[in-house]
């Protein structure tokens, strides 16, 4: 389990997080929600040590983050960032980079690495695109390629920062179904999402954030039905049932 206590960070002297507390339970889908600029990405970046400095306590599996090397952290947590470069390489070779944490100089891939990479490509549904250049793929396929690279890292935890942004509806569903499948396999998934319907449908645990602080956390329905959600986003929420289950709708 990843645990965050009293996390404070700043960029160029400007405080971004003001004492965030959060727990991301093992084998569950945890989702961070909140308005733009409330510190969701900074929180997950802090876990990956991607922010210049922070105070507070972050522990991964009970071990303080300070005691984990960058390489060991990469064997525990994979991170699919919000902004993604489009390097001029094939999907297969990019997914191979997911094995980077496991290779020592001069970094020759072993058969085991290739097997894991091929499994990751299949799991992401990219068999037909393995030899295609990333720049020749659609946004959804590129997203899957980054996802496959994260899978090739073979970690217990995968963090996805807005994985459905820029994807069409079908690809959004595919991405979320994929996350669910990974969670069912025992992986801990941490996501940042803006789609409340997806949050309700897929999240096991939700953390609501505002202005660099965690406001509320709990089960998806519990958090989304709370008045805090309406206050934080400045909207009204409503719920209705169909044969598929509970749905949420939003009004200004």
């Amino acid at each position: 389990m990843i645990s965050i206590r009293n996390l404070c960070t700043s960029y160029d002297g400007e405080a971004v997080l003001h004492g965030v507390d959060a727990d991301f339970p093992e084998g569950k889908i945890s989702v961070l929600i909140g308005p733009n600029g409330c510190g969701k990405s900074t929180t997950v970046k802090s876990v990956m040590r991607l922010v210049p400095e922070y105070t507070g306590m972050i522990s991964v599996g009970g071990v303080p983050l300070e005691d984990i090397s960058q390489k060991d952290l990469a064997k525990k947590i994979a991170y699919v960032s919000q902004s993604r470069n489009v390097p001029d390489i094939t999907v297969y070779n990019m997914v191979m980079h997911g094995r980077y944490p496991y290779l020592s100089y001069p970094r020759h891939y072993r058969k085991e690495d290739r097997d894991i990479v091929e499994a990751a490509i299949r799991m992401a549904g990219l068999e037909d695109f393995a030899n295609r250049k990333l720049e020749n793929l659609s946004g959804g396929q590129r997203q899957k390629a980054y996802m496959a690279m994260a899978l090739a890292q073979d970690t217990e935890v995968i963090i996805m920062d807005e994985p459905t942004t820029f994807l069409d509806v079908k690809n959004q569903f595919e991405m979320m179904d994929h996350a669910k499948k990974l969670s069912d396999m025992g992986k801990t998934i941490i996501m940042i999402l803006h789609d409340m319907e997806a949050v309700l449908h897929y999240a096991d645990h939700v953390i609501l954030m505002k202005d660099g602080r965690d406001v509320l956390s709990g089960g998806a329905e519990e958090v989304l039905r709370s008045k805090e959600v309406e206050e934080v986003f400045g909207i009204h929420t409503g719920f209705y049932e169909t044969e598929d289950g509970l749905h949420i709708y939003l009004r200004s």
Partner: peptide, 23 residues
């Protein structure tokens, strides 16, 4: 020529390279 992996991982962007364990 033995550091080509490092160059390619670096070209994925700083955040991704760091998250792959690169200093």
């Amino acid at each position: 020529c033995t550091l080509t992996n490092e160059l390619d991982v670096l070209s994925l962007g700083d955040d991704t390279a760091k998250s792959l364990g690169m200093r």
